[in-house]
Design a protein around this nucleic acid. Sequence first.
DNA 1: TTGTACGCGTTATCAT
DNA 2: ATGATAACGCGTACAA
Lengths: 349, 349
Amino acid sequence: MDNTFAPPLKKSRAKPAPARVTIRTVAEDAGVSVSAVSKVLRNAYGVSDGLRARVMASIEKLDYRPSASARGMRGQSYTLGVLLTDIRNVFFAEIMEGINDTLAPTPYQPLLGVSQLRRRVERSLVDAIIDRQMDGLILVAPRMPLPEIEDVAKRLPTVVIGSHPAGTSRFDTVNNDDILGGEAVVDYLNGLGLRRITFFTLTEPDDDDDENTVMMHRERGYVSAMTRLGLDVNIERAAHDTVAEAARRLVASKDRPEAIFCWGDAWALRVISAATDLGVRIPQDIRVVGYDNNQYCELAQNSLTSVDQSGRELGKQAARLLIERIEGRREPYHFTVTPSLIVRNSTGG
Amino acid sequence: MDNTFAPPLKKSRAKPAPARVTIRTVAEDAGVSVSAVSKVLRNAYGVSDGLRARVMASIEKLDYRPSASARGMRGQSYTLGVLLTDIRNVFFAEIMEGINDTLAPTPYQPLLGVSQLRRRVERSLVDAIIDRQMDGLILVAPRMPLPEIEDVAKRLPTVVIGSHPAGTSRFDTVNNDDILGGEAVVDYLNGLGLRRITFFTLTEPDDDDDENTVMMHRERGYVSAMTRLGLDVNIERAAHDTVAEAARRLVASKDRPEAIFCWGDAWALRVISAATDLGVRIPQDIRVVGYDNNQYCELAQNSLTSVDQSGRELGKQAARLLIERIEGRREPYHFTVTPSLIVRNSTGG
DNA sequence: TTGTACGCGTTATCAT
DNA sequence: ATGATAACGCGTACAA
């Protein structure tokens, strides 16, 4: 549904009218003009030290805070939208921490919207962010088609994390090299003498042959390495709500693969669960590899070999690029980190 | 740092001035007055069907969207702040989903701030939310002292999830009965014939003898049941960044307890990790219990017995209560769900 | 260096 | 039923 428009309020909130402290209150208290206060607030030129001191004192004393709404109307709102598509994915938490790190010493406040993997929600969230005059937007692993992202980027500075849109120039991207990561996993497993390696990934919705997702790039890396090594490509797909069953089937099957390379850690943990449940030993009977190296990989009961990409670093870079864009940069920048394989017991490491 | 005030922009963003569609544009296009459009937007009284239809058509045609900033200046911003203290805690993701569920068919948009367990950040986030004229606030497991929360609640409608402030009346709360949950765990373990049960929880900062946290209530439940059963109380404390070591020490110790009851699932998973690593068998050598019943509990490698409280339900109720408050309710409401123990293999279940 | 006045997009009051 | 208009708090020309 469209949340844009408002129903009437049954009862209007009681307003005790506590005489809000505005820029005017401060000006009067400090005995100066409003514009003087405004200048102090924005570190603009043309304010004497004495004046500045007086104003600051009044601000402190009155506990004045500028209204973001009013600011938003005139120009910047000092708010940045972050669109998280899947808050259950703990890897995204690290990204968020990186964003917070970079933004902490700036006047920009990041605010999150959560779309729960729902395309419709994703779109309406972007609208909500635009409606709120936010100064910029960070998209984390968006499911929106490229043209739509470009539309959005036309309206406000945008940085995308975790998507590989080919040849776009309207926004910045921050990624790890998912193709390289996919290849690295296959090469490593093959180095262990393994040949029957299955890639376990997400089924895309029919209407969505999206080549830009990280899943797809990891898959491409897998396919490319397997092909190069002369091995048979084997890809197993499942939807989000059927991962457990699919993992079980995969592990229990007669011609069980020697190794399962999962598009992400969450899926790998499900595979470990299925194996544990069925009494299939890891790594003796089957090896499991994940991607993202999230916080659960190192728990001994998982001890999951995974591809590390520093989420924190991705978040930091995204925030940095976004601020650059807000401050006027127009040329696109695409930041890439090189992933590294972290070997643990799930592959005998 | 205080992020309230702004530094000057090095370069001002180029403004191609794409002639923004405002309420006025719509009014002109539809051939009516601005107030007419406004009324249509707010479903206010005094609009004929014909006028409404014309206005709606224009809105559609022009793809008009109201400016949240402008709305915020006059009254409601239709934005609700959600303050998450720990985005790594996957249980909170469920709460968020519940909030989204309830809010989806309303015009209110939830936006998250993440404080990463840092008190200072928590406070400045609340300020940021107030500055942005948000209509309401949901605090999830806040670390702020009660008086501060009450201060905040004076400024905007507030609902708190996951905290048990005694005898407060300025805001609503939504919780499960943590004391009951704590007792239930002890009773269950004792019913298994166990007597040496340790509670593994968070060290509070010195200045923070906060009786309101969920940890503390779970602890009280533990203590009360242990005492009632005539068993020795044994509490182990650790800080967030030393959980792994503490868990290891606990599991490796000579007088290892028969069972470890952890304040939350994340800690229980660490205990399982330590046990796995040290070759201590679960549940034969030691039993482990968590709290929250998060999504990782049911993975076979964890198979963690845990206390279930539906995060989704908590989120739904919180959102519902908040809207009621925004619409005028003044009497406080305290919602409580009864937790239930989910028995799994970590206790031999 | 300081002050005045206007506009940003919306809501709400008051006429018509 | 409809429309004119005064706020809301801030930024910014422009005037002093």
